[in-house]
């Protein structure tokens, strides 16, 4: 009984870690521009697909991973330059719709270039499962969870210890004031897109040996990441991580104990319930309305 529960939790935490990485991407860009970047899921897809392609062309794994992180980051900057920047005066809603368009373009290009088939590559350190109290844990799951922890700590150091990180935080709080004290808010936005894209790609690379990848995996992963970001409180880093893991675990428990047919519906119901009682999400910024 306990072993079964533990198995569901392992499964949920692994998938949840990817949702958390996607949610962190949403959070970074939201903080810098108040835009929900619906192309976030495509960065996850790009990470996985590019690693497959580079490995197939004979590059060693570390080089393939490095390139698969860099290229989506560049793609993130290009998307910002070509679509968000020219539409600067437009409202947030228009910008959000533009990101949906950008995601369609990226997905379409990959579909034509890579094809519609699924692909995968071997896990980083073999696929011999580790037995924990009767449940099996894939070594790759440890890679996913460990890498997520490293990324979260690195982000925290970046935001609290470096001038660039503090500049991004300042822009998030008040863009006009940030500009007045000499922060280049335009560059902040570019850096946010590059970071969000690289973090998303990292999620895609880590998850591909477990779940495979194809040109259209970004749709569902992106949506679940968005749910995770909203549940955790849009704009909150720790919230994104907790939201992601929570969505993953609840999904796995639903599939295990209720019915696998309702697995995808539960996260979306979760959004309603949490937003009804806690409109700012679990860890959203607390603000007081001035009456």
């Amino acid at each position: 009984m306990l072993a079964q529960l533990l198995q569901f939790v392992f499964s949920g935490l692994t998938v949840g870690a990817t949702y958390a990485l996607a949610a962190l991407g949403f959070t970074l860009i939201y903080n810098a521009s108040h835009v929900i970047n619906f192309a976030q899921g495509e960065f996850i897809m790009l990470g996985g697909i590019l690693t497959v392609v580079f490995l197939a062309s004979g590059l060693p794994l570390p080089v393939a991973i490095l390139l698969a992180l860099l290229i989506p980051a560049v793609a993130g900057v290009v998307i910002e330059k070509l679509t968000i920047e020219p539409a600067k005066g437009a409202g947030v809603e228009s910008l959000i719709i533009i990101t949906i368009g950008a995601s369609l373009v990226v997905r379409g290009l990959v579909q034509v270039w890579f094809g519609k088939g699924a692909a995968t590559f071997p896990a980083f350190s073999g696929s011999t499962p580790i037995a924990v109290a009767g449940a099996a844990l894939a070594p790759q799951s440890l890679w996913v969870l460990g890498s997520m922890a490293v990324i979260v700590v690195a982000l925290w150091l970046f935001f609290s210890r470096t001038i660039a990180g503090k500049g991004i935080l300042a822009t998030a709080v008040d863009p006009l004031a940030a500009q007045l004290v000499g922060i280049n808010t335009q560059r902040v936005l570019l850096v946010s897109f590059a970071l969000a894209a690289a973090i998303g790609a990292a999620g895609g690379i880590l998850l591909t040996p477990i779940t495979m990848t194809s040109y259209d995996v970004g749709i569902m992963l992106g949506l679940k990441g968005f749910v995770a970001a909203v549940v955790g409180g849009l704009g909150s880093g720790p919230g994104a991580v907790i939201g992601g893991l929570l969505v993953g675990v609840i999904e796995a428990l639903t599939a295990g104990y209720v019915s696998s047919a309702y697995k995808d519906a539960v996260p979306f119901v979760l959004i309603f319930v949490i937003l009804f009682f806690m409109p700012r999400g679990l860890l959203g910024p607390k603000t007081t309305e001035r009456v």
Binding site: Q4, Q7, T14, T211, M212, A252, G256, S260, K263
Partner: peptide, 17 residues
Amino acid sequence: NETYGPKDTDMTPQLTT
């Protein structure tokens, strides 16, 4: 008698059941 979605990426819960 279990099911999974065509885009699902993890079937361990169903298999554990």
